[in-house]
Amino acid sequence: MEAIVVQELRKRYGEVRALNGVSFSVREGEVFGLLGPNGAGKSTTVRVLVTLTRPDSGTASVAGHDVRKEPTAVRRTIGYVPQDSGVDGFGTGRENLMLQGRIQGMSGRDLRDRTNELLELVGIADAADRVVRGYSGGMRRRLDIALGLVHRPRVLFLDEPTTGLDPEARVEMWDEVTRLAQAESLTILLTTHYLEEADRLANRLAIVSQGTIVVEGTPGELKALLQGDAVHVELANGAVDQAKDVLAGVGARPEQVIDGRTVVARVENGGRALPGIISALEGAGIVVESVSVSRPSLDDVYLHYTGRDFQSEDRGE
């Protein structure tokens, strides 16, 4: 059973094509990640799915309801945790949760019990009756997530759940999301521009770049597609073409050139191939600044499929 089906979504804001034919589907009970740099179209996709904005063309359905034709049915089924916290800073955590529940049609004992349960579940029970303005970033984010869960939704949308959190709070949040997904038997769609986060949390993920899905699969599948380790050879004098030939000669497949001076090549086993690579380069008179070997990471996957370096893309370079 598919919890989310997205077909050929297109949307533009003036001259900017935010979505350029996005298609993917998410199975029930799955944690699905949309991974991409800032401005890739992740948040726009989520906003279409939670009925905040309409696509120019294409269709999307959540839990069997068409987002355009049955927005109210969709809103009842989903929890949405926006990228920027949507909590009312002047109310307490408990008040925020109670109001959200009432708007979702809950009341009485059921709502009170659920509120207490969630406050415990996300670990802010001690601060429940304090005004949210005094919360730390991590506590606020936990409340955000509780707000999205109050009416026991079937599908939860987490838009950049850990952006703005310090590394420690981020790791805690990852554990939290994993635990919630099981405790509440949820389907989760999360967007992130942290490769590590997608790797840790998502059962399956799609890489989004410039308004389209570049590749889709489990983190393991995506890495396996790359077959082997990456060897990064940084050259002192930029003799890129010569270095490529030498690498190919010793059985390392050159794949990318970064910044005109670093050649990335793929080998079966990096550790074993390294001595041969270095001596071949030396033998050809190529001066090497540094060499490093890495297991395939999502960074490599991103680089492989988009031809661009994730970090610099994310900074908008």
């Binding site: 939670v50 009925t51 905040l52 109210t72 809103r75 009842r76 989903i78 949405y80 926006p82 920027d84 916290s85 949507g86 909590v87 009312d88 800073g89 959200q100 708007i103 979702q104 049609g105 707000l147």
Partner: peptide, 16 residues
């Protein structure tokens, strides 16, 4: 103030 703090955005994704 509610628009700036995204409170309205959160309400819009509910049946309100």
């Amino acid at each position: 103030s509610d628009l700036e703090h995204k409170v309205v955005e959160r309400f819009l994704a509910t049946p309100a």
